[in-house]
Amino acid sequence: MSDPAVVLDDLREESEELDLLVRKLSDEQWSAPTPAPGWTVAHQIAHLAWTDRAALLAATDPEAFAAETAKALAAPDRFVDDGAEEGAKLPPAELLAAWRAGRERLQDALRAVPPGARFPWYGPPMSAPAMATARLMETWAHGQDVADALGVVRTPTARLRHVAWIGVRARDYAFLVRGIPAPAEPFRVELDGIDGIDGIDGIDGTGGEVWAYGPEDATQTVTGPALDFCLLVTQRVHRDDTALVAHGPDAERWLAIAQAFAGPAGTGRAPREEV
C-alpha cells in the first residue's frame, strides 16, 4: 500500500457510493436505527465526519490532535459516541454538507503528506496510505450499517482488498488492546477475493480469486470469503455467521476478537437468530 493515490482514489469512490445511498433520504430515514445500538443513520454519517476531522488534525496539526487525544483518554468509553451524538443533532442537509467538505479536505491533506511521513493516531502512528486505508475501512463498515438500516443489499467491490489488508495488519493490535499477548508466529490468510482487482502488496490478485497474506508454510491459517473476513474484522458480523475456517488455536482465537479499527476493544455483533 505504498502509493497513497491508489487508496485515496478508492476512498473517494467508497465515500461516493455511500453518499449516493444517503443523499436523498427523508428526515425519517436519517433517524432510522442501525445495527449499532443507539445509532441512527445520522449517527453513522456524523461519526465518519467526526473521524475525518480527527484525521485531518493528525495529518496537519499534531499538537491539536494531541489535545483531542487527551479528551478521548479522559472518556475512553464515551468519546466516540459523544462525537456521533453531537453531529447527529445537525439537520440532515447540514450534516451531509459537513461530511462532504471534511472528506475532501482530508483527501487534499493526505495527498500532500511527504512520502514516508508518519503522524499520530489513536492506535499506532499512521502513514498517509495507512490513514487512507483506515478511512476507507471505516467508510465501508459504517456504510454497511446504513445499508442494513435501509434494507439495501450492497454489491461487494474490489475495494474490499484494503479492508482485508488492514484487518490482517491489525492482528496483533486486536490481541494487545485486550491485554492478551499477540501470537509469536505469523498466520497464513487466504481469502476468496472479489473480481477485478490488481495484485498489490501481499495479495495475489490473479483473476480476483485469492487474496493471500503471510508465509505459505505457516502452521496456523484462516481461509474463506473475503466479504465474510471484512465483515468480521470490522465487527459487522458474528464469527458464527461467517464461512471462515481457522486452523490452529491462536487463529481461532483471533477470529473471535479481530478488529481492524483503532481504539478500545469492540463488543462485536450478536449471532443471527435462527429462523
Rank of each mutant, 00 (worst) to 15 (best):
G179C: 07
G179M: 06
G179Q: 05
G179I: 11
I180T: 13
P181G: 01
P181L: 03
P181Y: 00
A182I: 08
P183Q: 06
P183E: 02
A184T: 14
P186T: 03
P186D: 04
R188E: 11
R188S: 14
V189K: 06
E190H: 10
L191T: 10
I194C: 06
D195V: 14
G196S: 11
G196K: 12
G196W: 13
G196E: 10
I197H: 10
I197P: 13
I197S: 14
I197W: 09
D198Y: 02
D198P: 05
G199W: 06
G199D: 15
I200T: 12
D201Q: 13
D204G: 09
D204N: 13
D204S: 12
G205M: 02
T206R: 12
T206F: 06
T206Y: 00
G208Y: 03
G208H: 07
E209Y: 05
E209I: 13
E209T: 15
W211L: 14
A212T: 13
G214C: 06
E216A: 15
E216C: 00
T219Q: 14
T219M: 11
V222N: 09
V222C: 01
T223F: 02
P225D: 04
A226Y: 03
L227S: 03
D228F: 03
C230H: 02
L231D: 08
L231E: 12
L232Y: 09
L232K: 08
T234L: 07
T234G: 03
T234A: 09
R236I: 10
R236L: 04
V237I: 15
V237S: 02
R239F: 10
D240C: 03
T242R: 03
A243I: 00
A243S: 12
L244R: 02
V245G: 01
A246L: 03
H247N: 12
G248W: 07
P249C: 00
P249G: 01
D250R: 14
D250C: 02
D250A: 15
A251K: 07
A251F: 06
E252K: 12
R253L: 15
R253W: 02
W254H: 07
L255T: 11
A256Q: 14
A256H: 13
A256W: 04
I257C: 07
A258I: 09
A258G: 01
A260D: 01
A260L: 00
A260M: 00
F261Q: 10
F261H: 08
G263W: 05
P264F: 08
P264K: 04
P264V: 10
A265I: 11
A265V: 11
A265S: 12
G266E: 12
G266S: 12
G266K: 05
T267K: 14
T267D: 14
G268E: 09
